[in-house]
Design a protein around this nucleic acid. Structure first.
Length: 403
DNA sequence: AAGGTATACAACCGCCCATTA
DNA sequence: GTAATGGGCGGTTGTATACCT
């Protein structure tokens, strides 16, 4: 009984068809046929092309290998970072991840993740599913946080998909026009987004969500909460050993109706950049509203340990000094650290060359050394870039994005 | 040099969904 | 309304190669 589903027939007769690696001759036959006739029906293709293969096999061979617009070869550091960040955001949605990596197939990305990045994660003591230190992911310290973070991971996936859909709807309909000016402009900012061109609709959408209660879809709140969870879990939980934190994460649905505006987008400010796109300008308050209040208790205890910040060295999560600048609270951000570590920054001094390469592009450099200097503006810059990366992904699904 | 093991990647499998007849 | 079909997707397996003992 080869097929469990009723009404389902085999895509092809299995007997007599070749399986396994494709030969150059087979590739040539397939290429020649598609170039001349197009693939048409994959099921009907093999006999026409003179191939003893099933149509599905032909389709896979074409889409994953023979297609002319495929980039093969080693993944760049930028691509690696994209994969890691997108995976943190989207999970194992390889096709969705692939849409943001030009000329890379989902299969290739999936394989690369499984054979390289996933192992690197594990080696670093980070759970590849939750993108968190395993001590947290396993719930060895704070079970509640672990569950919350796992839930948030799924929530983030759900929210990201929803955000994509919403952004597409807005862009495609081009009906919504925002007559209100860009709100919450930074005092130093002169950027405006008053036009209704499609290029700025994403910015408008984000700002609309930030300012109009009825439109506050909270698509990004889950990420914010997620980040908060990481902060709390990492700093107050497993790292500083301050005990468990109270649950503060709710589902997007529940927060939609109950959360105060002050803990939503207003602590994030978006601007339209010179290219007409949207970019995250700054986090006006790392801990805004109730989230800050709920964290105060932890922060009081945290004051005793402000000289310590977590870093991963040789696969161990350890402490290193962190100076405070201008009385500002040092903040660990989700995404800081482990992404770079995965990219080869295993130690504070080992990634210099790579840092230089990445700094040449639009990559974050969140080396621990920089963090250790306590340069608040640099931290802010890193934070800004990190969110820009995420937002550019979720708000520009149609545009391949390489960080 | 030979055998065993690990790694990387291509390919396959089964499920699912949208479309079509 | 239902079965048939095509194709997408994620998980898994198979195989070639590199590395180690």
């Amino acid at each position: 009984m080869p097929f469990k589903k009723m009404g389902r027939t085999p895509c092809c007769e299995k007997t007599g068809l070749k399986k396994g690696p494709w030969t150059p001759e087979e590739d040539q036959k397939l290429l020649a046929y598609i170039e001349e006739h197009g693939h048409g029906s994959w099921r009907a293709l093999p006999p026409k092309a003179g191939l003893q293969r099933c149509g599905k096999s032909c389709r896979l061979r074409w889409t994953n290998y023979l297609r002319p617009d495929i980039k093969r070869g080693k993944f760049t550091a930028q691509e690696e970072q994209s994969i890691i960040q997108l995976h943190a955001l989207l999970g194992n949605r390889w096709s969705a991840i692939a849409t943001h990596l030009p000329k890379r197939t989902d299969n290739e990305i999936k394989n690369y993740w499984n054979t390289h990045l996933k192992k690197r994660l594990t080696k670093m003591g980070i759970d590849p599913v939750t993108h968190k230190p395993k001590s947290i992911a396993l719930g060895s310290v704070i079970d509640g946080q672990s569950k919350n973070s796992a839930n948030l991971s799924h929530m983030a996936q759900w929210e990201s998909a929803r955000l994509e859909a919403e952004a597409r709807l807005v862009q495609e309909s081009k009906i919504i026009k925002f007559n209100t000016p860009m709100v919450q402009q930074h005092p130093n900012s002169s950027s405006k987004a008053t036009d209704s061109s499609s290029s700025s609709l994403s910015a408008q959408l984000l700002n609309k969500m930030a300012t109009q209660p009825a439109a506050q879809a909270l698509c990004l709140d889950v990420l914010r909460a997620w980040e908060g969870t990481i902060q709390k879990a990492t700093i107050s939980g497993s790292i500083l050993g301050l005990g468990s934190s109270q649950d503060f994460i709710e589902s997007p649905t529940s927060t939609l109706s109950s959360m105060d505006n002050s803990v939503q987008f207003p602590h994030m400010r978006f601007e339209e950049n010179s290219r007409g796109g949207v970019e995250f300008a700054e986090d006006l308050n790392h801990f805004g509203g109730t989230m800050k209040e709920e964290c105060d208790a932890d922060w009081k205890g945290y004051e005793k340990c402000v000289d310590d910040v977590v870093s991963a060295v040789d696969g161990q999560w350890t402490f290193e000094p962190l100076k405070i600048v201008d009385g500002q609270e040092p903040v660990l951000h989700f995404g800081d650290g482990f992404t770079d570590l995965l990219l080869g920054h295993e130690t504070r001094d080992s990634g210099d060359q790579k840092d230089q390469e990445m700094n040449g592009g639009n990559c974050r450099d969140s080396s621990n050394a920089d963090r250790g200097t306590g340069k608040a503006d640099e931290l802010d810059h890193e934070n800004k870039n990190y969110w820009n990366n995420i937002f550019s992904v979720v708000t520009s699904p149609a545009k391949p994005q390489v960080f």
